[in-house]
Amino acid sequence: MPNLVVLTEQLLAPVPGGTGRYTRELAAALARTAPGGWTVTGAVSRQADVSAAVVPGVEGPRVLPLPRRALIAAWERGVPYWPGGDSVHACTPLAPPRGRVVVTVHDTVPWTHPETLTPRGVAWHRRAIGRAVARAGAVVVPTSAVAEELRRCAPGPVPLHVVHNGVTPLPDEEPVDVPPRYALAVGTVEPRKGFDLLVAATAEVGLPLVVVGPPGWGGVDLRAPHVTLLGRLGDAELAYVLRRAAVLAAPSLAEGFGLPVVEAMAAGVPVVHSDAPALVEVAGGAGVAVPRGDRAALAAALRSVVTDEALATRLAAAGRVRARAFTWDDAAREVWAVHLGLFR
Score class of each variant (00 low, 15 high):
residue 2 P to D: 12
residue 7 L to N: 08
residue 8 T to L: 04
residue 9 E to I: 03
residue 13 A to P: 01
residue 18 G to M: 05
residue 19 T to A: 13
residue 20 G to R: 03
residue 21 R to Y: 09
residue 25 E to Y: 07
residue 25 E to H: 13
residue 25 E to V: 06
residue 26 L to A: 02
residue 28 A to K: 01
residue 35 P to K: 05
residue 36 G to R: 02
residue 41 T to M: 09
residue 42 G to K: 02
residue 43 A to E: 03
residue 43 A to R: 02
residue 46 R to V: 08
residue 51 S to M: 07
residue 53 A to D: 08
residue 59 E to I: 12
residue 63 V to S: 07
residue 67 P to T: 03
residue 67 P to N: 06
residue 68 R to M: 11
residue 70 A to S: 01
residue 70 A to C: 00
residue 74 A to T: 01
residue 75 W to V: 02
residue 78 G to C: 06
residue 80 P to M: 02
residue 82 W to I: 09
residue 83 P to I: 03
residue 84 G to A: 07
residue 85 G to D: 00
residue 89 H to A: 06
residue 92 T to Q: 04
residue 93 P to G: 08
residue 95 A to S: 11
residue 96 P to Q: 04
residue 105 V to N: 04
residue 105 V to I: 15
residue 107 D to K: 05
residue 107 D to T: 09
residue 110 P to K: 02
residue 114 P to H: 04
residue 115 E to V: 07
residue 116 T to N: 09
residue 118 T to P: 00
residue 118 T to C: 01
residue 123 A to I: 02
residue 125 H to W: 04
residue 125 H to G: 05
residue 136 A to H: 03
residue 139 V to H: 02
residue 140 V to W: 02
residue 142 P to A: 09
residue 143 T to S: 15
residue 145 A to K: 04
residue 147 A to M: 08
residue 150 L to E: 03
residue 151 R to I: 09
residue 153 C to G: 07
residue 154 A to R: 03
residue 155 P to N: 04
residue 155 P to D: 05
residue 160 L to Y: 11
residue 165 N to K: 13
residue 168 T to H: 11
residue 168 T to S: 15
residue 168 T to N: 12
residue 172 D to S: 14
residue 176 V to R: 09
residue 178 V to D: 10
residue 178 V to A: 13
residue 178 V to I: 14
residue 179 P to W: 12
residue 181 R to V: 15
residue 183 A to Y: 12
residue 186 V to F: 07
residue 189 V to S: 06
residue 189 V to E: 04
residue 192 R to L: 14
residue 194 G to V: 11
residue 199 V to Y: 07
residue 202 T to Q: 15
residue 202 T to I: 15
residue 203 A to F: 10
residue 207 L to D: 10
residue 207 L to N: 11
residue 211 V to K: 01
residue 216 G to L: 05
residue 217 W to T: 01
residue 217 W to P: 00
residue 219 G to N: 07
residue 225 P to F: 13
residue 226 H to N: 10
residue 229 L to P: 02
residue 229 L to I: 10
residue 232 R to P: 13
residue 240 Y to H: 15
residue 240 Y to D: 14
residue 241 V to D: 08
residue 243 R to F: 11
residue 244 R to S: 13
residue 247 V to L: 11
residue 248 L to S: 05
residue 248 L to Y: 05
residue 252 S to M: 09
residue 252 S to T: 11
residue 254 A to E: 15
residue 256 G to P: 06
residue 256 G to T: 07
residue 260 P to S: 11
residue 262 V to Q: 12
residue 263 E to T: 13
residue 264 A to F: 12
residue 271 V to N: 09
residue 275 D to L: 12
residue 280 V to C: 00
residue 281 E to N: 07
residue 282 V to L: 10
residue 283 A to H: 05
residue 284 G to F: 12
residue 284 G to N: 10
residue 286 A to N: 07
residue 287 G to P: 05
residue 289 A to D: 11
residue 294 D to S: 08
residue 297 A to K: 01
residue 306 V to R: 10
residue 308 D to V: 11
residue 311 L to E: 02
residue 319 G to K: 03
residue 321 V to W: 01
residue 323 A to N: 05
residue 327 T to A: 13
residue 327 T to E: 08
residue 331 A to Q: 03
residue 335 V to I: 00
residue 337 A to P: 00
residue 339 H to D: 07
residue 343 F to V: 14
